[in-house]
Amino acid sequence: MEVRTIKVFTTVDNINLHTQVVDMSMTYGQQFGPTYLDGADVTKIKPHNSHEGKTFYVLPNDDTLRVEAFEYYHTTDPSFLGRYMSALNHTKKWKYPQVNGLTSIKWADNNCYLATALLTLQQIELKFNPPALQDAYYRARAGEAANFCALILAYCNKTVGELGDVRETMSYLFQHANLDSCKRVLNVVCKTCGQQQTTLKGVEAVMYMGTLSYEQFKKGVQIPCTCGKQATKYLVQQESPFVMMSAPPAQYELKHGTFTCASEYTGNYQCGHYKHITSKETLYCIDGALLTKSSEYKGPITDVFYKENSYTTTIK
């Protein structure tokens, strides 16, 4: 009895394709271990004539594949690729409408935090270190965002349907971005203890939790000093293409032309909904596939993004 075979390709990165001759009487799992086709788990399936010449994702289970996976995804987590594939199996079914010149995501599976993050990423200057993220990001900007969303979920250790947080998501993504040249110098002034300067680099240099107003941050924000008295913390120097200011959701007025974009969060910790506000020729609110415009805006804002380049204080 002759062994019926077909020729397929296996890959971990969709760049390096490895030619395989597979036995049609055995499952993919018996031949390769966990195997995925377009995100779908085909591990328990036997090869079919229609699979001839198709590319299958496999887990990096030998040295060659491990090197290829690390170079593309910059992670050695053995569960990463499987999590990416199972997320992709959902995100490829989502709709990605162009809204006001940006790629958004039609609401499904509690994905409003991903839509808000995706919209924000198209408006701030950011370059990702893992080629996987950078490639998928370019495709997302062009309207094909399924891979990018699935990668975000995998890097953030999230599953489809789980509630997510924009600030946490951005923080994970910033860790995989090139923020080497970003720098922030802060000064804390206390009447009792004097003053202390701190220099922050990388992710810490672009994120701040405690106030939404970048102007206020430049002037000074009140913080408790270690001595128990009130101290003032203010920005001395900022070198970065953008800054992200966050605070627990509270009524906040966004003035046209003073910011790049913002995240609105309605609801409580267990259950809520994100919308995205962007400042173009007027203010726009993007909620999944829905767009509304207004000249002014007041609502429960939790993150505001500002364009920056270089700032030095005039406070002496």
Rank of each mutant, 00 (worst) to 15 (best):
V3P: 14
R184P: 02
Y265W: 01
T260G: 00
E68Y: 08
Q123P: 06
V160I: 08
Q30H: 14
Q31I: 14
R184F: 00
T35D: 15
T192A: 11
I286A: 00
I45S: 14
E281C: 12
G220P: 07
K158I: 00
E253N: 09
N147L: 05
G267A: 05
G267S: 02
Q270I: 10
A154M: 00
E264A: 08
E308W: 09
V3S: 13
R4P: 14
A250C: 12
K201S: 12
K280M: 14
M26Y: 13
A40R: 10
K158Q: 04
P241F: 00
V236C: 05
T232Y: 08
E2W: 13
L126Y: 01
C193A: 07
G33Y: 08
Y113Q: 05
C271I: 13
G288Y: 03
C225M: 03
I15A: 09
I301G: 01
T11D: 09
T282D: 08
Y84S: 04
A40N: 14
I301W: 11
M26N: 14
K233A: 13
W94K: 08
G194K: 00
Y214M: 07
D23Q: 13
V21A: 14
P47C: 03
P300N: 12
D13I: 08
L153E: 05
K158L: 04
E239S: 08
V3W: 14
R167Y: 03
G29K: 08
F174S: 07
E308S: 07
E204R: 10
P78Q: 11
K44A: 15
P131G: 11
V12K: 07
I15T: 11
Q175N: 08
K219E: 11
Y252H: 09
E68C: 01
Y57N: 07
L153G: 06
T10L: 13
T55D: 08
Y138A: 14
Q216L: 05
L119V: 07
D180S: 11
E68D: 07
Y113W: 15
Y57G: 08
Y311T: 05
K229N: 14
R83W: 08
G267D: 00
S246I: 05
V189Q: 12
E204V: 10
S295F: 09
E68W: 00
F148P: 04
A289S: 09
C271T: 07
V99G: 10
Y214E: 01
R83N: 08
A146G: 12
I223S: 12
Q222T: 12
G228W: 03
A40W: 11
E296A: 11
Y252S: 01
S295M: 15
A231P: 03
K229V: 06
G161L: 00
V99N: 07
M245A: 01
Y269I: 10
K46L: 14
Q98A: 03
T11K: 08
K229E: 14
T226C: 13
S171Q: 13
E296M: 13
G164N: 04
G267C: 05
L291V: 15
T75E: 09
K298M: 13
Y172W: 05
T19W: 12
Q195T: 15
Y28P: 00
E52Q: 13
I301K: 01
C227G: 01
T116F: 06
E296Q: 13
Q216D: 13
K127M: 10
N178W: 02
V304C: 03
I223W: 08
P97N: 09
M209L: 09
C261E: 07
Y306V: 00
N129S: 06
T314A: 11
G267M: 10
Q230K: 12
K46F: 09
N309T: 15
A145F: 03
L126E: 03
T211K: 04
Y36K: 09
K280T: 09
N49C: 14
I45V: 14
N157E: 06
M244P: 03
N100F: 00
K233T: 13
Y208N: 01
M170N: 06
N49P: 13
N187S: 11
N89L: 12
G161I: 07
T313C: 14
L102C: 00
A136W: 09
C182K: 05
Y234K: 05
P78A: 11
Q251P: 14
Y57R: 02
K316M: 15
T10I: 11
L212G: 07
Y214L: 11
T5S: 13
C149P: 06
C182G: 14
A136R: 05
N268M: 02
C285P: 05
V203P: 14
V3D: 15
Y284I: 12
C225V: 03
V8M: 12
Q222K: 12
A231E: 01
L118Y: 15
T76M: 15
D23W: 11
G33T: 07
K233F: 05
V236K: 01
Y36I: 06
N100E: 15
Q30A: 13
K191V: 11
H273L: 02
L254F: 05
Y252W: 10
L153F: 03
T116E: 04
